[in-house]
Design a protein around this nucleic acid. Structure first.
Lengths: 244, 244
DNA sequence: CGGGCCCTTGAAGGCCCTCAACGGAGGTGG
DNA sequence: CCACCTCCGTTGAGGGCCTTCAAGGGCCCG
């Protein structure tokens, strides 16, 4: 019941077609992980599939020299582990206090044999993961710092959609964002500062921003900013077309 | 029978677990596509799944401004289209003369309902795609030009493994490599020149290189080249540990 | 209050991109 | 057969974007 208490999480599950798995996890006990702890390790035997009930999780891969790539961030209602063969290909770490339940992979596979509907959900989930990975490859290969940050902010905005439609929640630290977008924390920070100066964002509470100009944010996320004059004092430029 | 005639293709299929699909495609007619032509378009209704019999195919996604990302390259024995929902998320273009067969997606789905073994093969294929996409994100986010090119060359080498173990075939043009690795053609060219100067590669026939020093190539692919002195005259440095 | 973590801001430098020119290979037509 | 064109690959010069290095401030907690 706990999972269904969050209407936005429910919407996301319906959209992603993972609602079919939810009843299976309802029978499992709920565990908690403290901020900064690891829920599963890269390279471990992949015995379980996880479902996040509350909190935020980062999905990490490491290079041999210690550098890190964050594949993505998970929130309430998200599943992780369906794409593993024998070993976890990445680690899952709690960003804040996380509640989750786990399910034995063998049990899940038996269910998959019995329920055709579940198989379709699984396919849908995997295809979403592939699609998301390809979108992210596009970001990493061709987008500049501002486009990366704006794309990321839009994704976070859509994820939180339903509150007031213009609040972005960033529970992760700058290092996480940097390792997700293939940048340094300094460049992330500078880019956010620039977006505030441009009048697109407004700093709100800790780990939150307000979106002042959503269309400008969307434009900055996808288009080439060649025509930008790059002046800090041009912050009022977008004020006339304020969103909403 | 044509597909089984290539022993390397067969090995790859066994490793990737896609051999189960091959018999289904044997019943289909074989089509050909000339170099440069498009086999399926991004955005089109995804009615078919394709299987490459001969030749090379590039998988492309485009940004709004015309820039291009090449997700990957396919060769004999490879399948494409299993990860689509309703529309092709990317285009498939023939690099050289390509033979392929196609299969109606509806037919495939009926087979999937009947044959549990096929379902496992499908899952395996999708997990491989996710894994490859994540590896590529790592490349795009954290590797420099030399590491990118070396990683790509190693992949090509493994793909052609069995010939003589040290010949790399690059049927695609520089623009394709650049759009795959998130670089410009100039940087790709310069990096290849540098690898030749370092004594790691040797230019061979058109669209081919010989690997002189495979361990150096592997090291350059994954490690941070901070300790490199970057001198062209240091080309003999690796000669003492020549591979094979 | 001190220390650690997080974030921001500044200055300098490097890596890669952009722009440009050139040479070779392959195809076509005079 | 060769001139001509196009495509492809290479090489050079210059500049821009982002990284690296460094310093400082805010916040939290022991």
């Amino acid at each position: 019941m706990q999972a269904a208490s969050n209407i936005h999480s429910l919407e996301r599950q319906l959209a992603h077609g993972t609602i079919g798995f939810a009843p299976l996890f309802m029978r499992q006990t709920i565990e908690t992980a403290q901020s900064g702890t690891t829920i599963f390790f890269e390279g471990d035997a992949a015995c379980h599939v996880f479902r996040i009930v509350r909190g935020n999780v980062r999905i990490c891969r490491f290079l041999s020299d210690g550098r890190r790539l964050i594949i993505g961030f998970l929130g309430a209602g998200d599943l992780v582990g369906l794409s593993f063969r024998n070993r976890y290909m990445f680690a899952g770490e709690a960003i804040d206090e996380v509640s989750f339940s786990r399910m034995n992979k063998r049990t899940l596979e038996e269910e998959l044999q019995l329920v055709p509907e579940l198989r379709l959900q699984l396919l849908s989930q995997l295809r979403d993961e592939i699609s998301a990975a390809q979108d992210h490859m596009l970001l990493l290969s061709h987008k500049n710092a501002e486009q990366r940050v704006c794309t990321f902010l839009l994704h976070r905005l859509e994820r939180n959609e339903g509150r007031d439609g213009r609040t972005i929640s960033l529970p992760m630290v700058r290092t996480d964002i940097a390792d997700h977008l293939g940048m340094t924390i300094e460049t992330v920070s500078r880019t956010l500062t620039k977006l505030v100066a441009k009048g697109i964002l407004l700093p709100a509470e800790k780990h939150q921003f307000k979106v002042v100009n959503r269309s400008a944010l969307a434009r900055a996320a996808d288009e080439d900013p060649d025509d930008d004059s790059e002046d800090a004092d041009s912050g009022a430029r977008y004020a006339g077309t304020r969103y909403q």
